[in-house]
């Protein structure tokens, strides 16, 4: 049977991660003048992998050759694997690591990629409509 949500593929999850990233960068920009604020960003690959998509590029997982070995990435299941602190190019005296220009560039890039994902979903929906109406 045709499952419509599986027809959208990775794009539905990608859209969610993109909007989460937009929030995170908006948070960085809102705190551009807050002392000791550390800018953060989303590791897109890890965030998408956390939403259930297997990652063909692979992260580094620890190999378990015996039954009593611990797996690597699963050990940090409590923390959000996708959030990373930004490395500042020019640290400021008040401990703030927000680089406004870089954040603006990232926000613009994220917005364009969000629109691209929307376009992908739209074309999927259009081909589904073609199949449904049979014209």
């Amino acid at each position: 049977m045709l499952d419509i949500s599986s027809q959208l593929g990775v794009h539905a999850d990608a859209l969610r991660v993109r909007s989460q990233r937009a929030e995170l960068i908006a948070n960085n920009l809102a705190n551009a003048d807050t002392p000791n604020f550390k800018a953060r960003d989303v590791d897109f690959r890890a965030a998408l992998a956390a939403s259930g998509y297997a990652d063909p590029g692979g992260g580094l997982a620890m190999s378990t050759t015996q039954g009593r070995h611990l797996g690597g990435p699963s050990a940090m299941a409590g923390a959000d694997p996708a959030l990373r602190y930004r490395q500042p190019l020019a640290p400021s005296l008040d401990g703030n690591t927000v680089d406004v220009q870089m954040e603006q560039a990232s926000f613009a890039e994220n917005a364009v990629r969000y629109q691209a994902t929307l376009t992908f979903i739209n074309s999927r929906l259009r081909s589904l409509m073609t199949a449904i109406t049979g014209q």
Binding site: A22, A26, A30, Q104, A108, A111, Y114, I121, N122, L125
Partner: peptide
């Protein structure tokens, strides 16, 4: 900067509403 963030987010959400 914050105004620009708000404008861009508004456009993103409006595009999402027009999905399909």
């Amino acid at each position: 900067n914050n105004v620009e963030v708000m404008n861009t987010s508004k456009e993103m959400l409006l595009a999402t509403l027009r999905l399909g």
